[in-house]
Design a protein around this nucleic acid. Structure first.
Lengths: 110, 110
DNA sequence: CTATCGTACAACCAAATGGTTGTAGATCAG
DNA sequence: CTGATCTACAACCATTTGGTTGTACGATAG
């Protein structure tokens, strides 16, 4: 499976990004509205730098975008990354459903 | 957010489990069919112990179950974990869609 | 019975992760 | 201009992660 090497590391980053509750919360918030980095930082019991790193992880995973406005940086949700992750899990579920369907068929025949 | 503390660590494990391409491949395979641990180990360019650890991670995340059969251990996919992850991402997308809808409304009014 | 197989687990290692503090550059307010 | 604010980034630290090898033990085959 040398194919889709890029897609694999992309997915690594995607799921890695989701594997932290602070980052999931950030995604939830910036999907609904807009926040500056320090606006987000104010919400959590950790340093500004820590939150900044979390935002950077989300940005690398294409789950979030940043846009400079004056001295502030506006963080927004990025629908594409979200869709990509969901679609993958849909695939897995489809495979599973196929299997369940096949088993049901076998049971019905027997 | 002290609430759902358990659910959060549960989700940490779930997404962490998906954040590795070998583990995603294992999930794909055991969702379709059944494999022993050494059967899986034969598929990847790494030690038996490494694959065993990957399976353990998937088991802790409730994505996979193991069942002893003689000296072998049968690994199977677990639909529940899969559904849980997908449902969460659905929530995120629903929130997003609400937002997009609201913006569309505003634009329509203006 | 003995050798082999499938598994589990401990000990170890390098690299990544999640956090910290400190420094520095833009931008804005007065 | 000066000081405060927002951001970025480096350096550091403890813990986790993903891998290794080696040992041990129950189940199976011959």
């Amino acid at each position: 499976m040398v194919v889709d090497q890029l897609r694999e590391t992309e997915l690594d980053r995607l799921f890695q990004a989701f594997a932290d509750s602070t980052r999931r919360d950030i995604v939830r918030r910036v999907t609904v509205g807009e926040y500056t980095v320090s606006g987000l930082a104010g919400l959590y019991a950790m340093s500004f730098a820590a939150v900044q790193k979390h935002v950077a992880v989300l940005e690398r995973a294409s789950l979030v975008t940043k846009e400079k406005r004056g001295r502030e940086q506006i963080v927004r949700g990025n629908h594409e990354g979200l869709q990509k992750a969901r679609r993958l899990l849909d695939e897995y579920e489809a495979i599973w459903q196929q299997r369940v369907g096949r088993i049901a068929d076998i049971l019905a025949e027997g």
